[in-house]
């Protein structure tokens, strides 16, 4: 699984990354988690607010830090 966290490096991006890593650990799923800070690459996902969570190339959420349960749901969607 390929997970990207989009954000120019604000505190909310850091908390999203932490939540994703915790969610993955609790679900016992391995994934390649990458932080994307380059603005052009971030914009290539056509979002208008950060942080954003991208799982397997699909934008799951933008502009907020979702709850851990919500993150797990997005991961599950991609596992199925």
């Amino acid at each position: 699984m390929d997970i990207k966290i989009l954000g120019p490096g604000c505190s909310r991006c850091a908390s999203l990354e932490k939540e994703v890593i915790n969610a993955l650990a609790e679900m016992d799923v391995t994934a390649d988690v990458k932080k994307v800070k380059d603005i052009q690459e971030i914009m290539s996902y056509k979002i208008m607010s950060t942080p954003a969570l991208v799982v397997n190339g699909k934008v799951k959420v933008a502009g907020k830090v979702p709850k851990r349960e919500e993150i797990k749901r997005y991961i599950k969607e991609e596992l199925a």
Partner: peptide, 14 residues
């Protein structure tokens, strides 16, 4: 509009 300084760039570009 909801806004935080970390969104200013994507918003500007958008």
């Amino acid at each position: 509009t909801p806004f935080c300084s970390c969104s200013s760039i994507p918003l500007f570009i958008g």
